[in-house]
Amino acid sequence: MNNFPGAPQASAQPLLQLTAVNKQFGDFTALHAVDFSVEKGDVVAIIGPSGSGKSTLLRCINMLELIDAGAIHFKGEELGSETRGGRRIRAANKTLDRQRRYFGMVFQGFHLFPHYSVLDNVLAGPLIVGRAARKDVIERGIYLLNRVGLADKINHYPSQLSGGQKQRVAIARALAMEPEIMLFDEPTSALDPELVNEVLEVMRELATAGTTMIVVTHEMEFARKVSNRVVLMDGGRIVDQGSPSELFEGSGSARCKRFIDSASRP
């Protein structure tokens, strides 16, 4: 509605906004009324101890988990729910599938399609979801594989790749859908130590190119050097957030310092 340039609401409206988001797993509350927003071009690092709700937050954003209360807005559009007769109900599956395309996701466990070659993995989104003709998207697929440094592996199958290579293919696969926000769920946690850097390097390049990214990570160096905002979660709440320099060097809360100290220790 108020999306034309110059409208006060438009400039005030963030790209992605979470308002009082609640997520329950049975009796366990994974997210307690989380408020969170992301601007275009942001690189947000979400850190925190395991079980603090980092991954849940990420998975709620692209609706792999459906929230129980609160709201998520992308460019002002309500995600995953709608209001009918004064009652809020879940959006139709078709709507969810369409809205998920705003996001690209990279998983800790890669989840490449084992029966597809590397190129077909990257093209899976455009071909299956986008119904594009192969000849129209094949160049873009090769371009993306080039971008993650795997142009020579086009015809390999995922089982023939190392973990770092798999994760870079997964990044290319997510980028192929031209998402507006890239979500990374602990992308380096399943990798052997010597393979972590090749993935972080690709992510650093994406950040430099202006990609909006939300990264759940245990890599404090990445959070410190690449992100422009760090969010610390604990017990299903955001307990601190700010620029990396605020959290890592200066005025962060005592709890934040404790976590960063313990996580940065080799």
Binding site: L64, G104, G125
Partner: peptide, 15 residues
């Protein structure tokens, strides 16, 4: 994870 990867890219259940 295969289902999640499909869902994350907006694939319908049938596809």
């Amino acid at each position: 994870g295969q289902r999640e990867a499909c869902k994350a890219m907006g694939m319908s259940d049938l596809r």
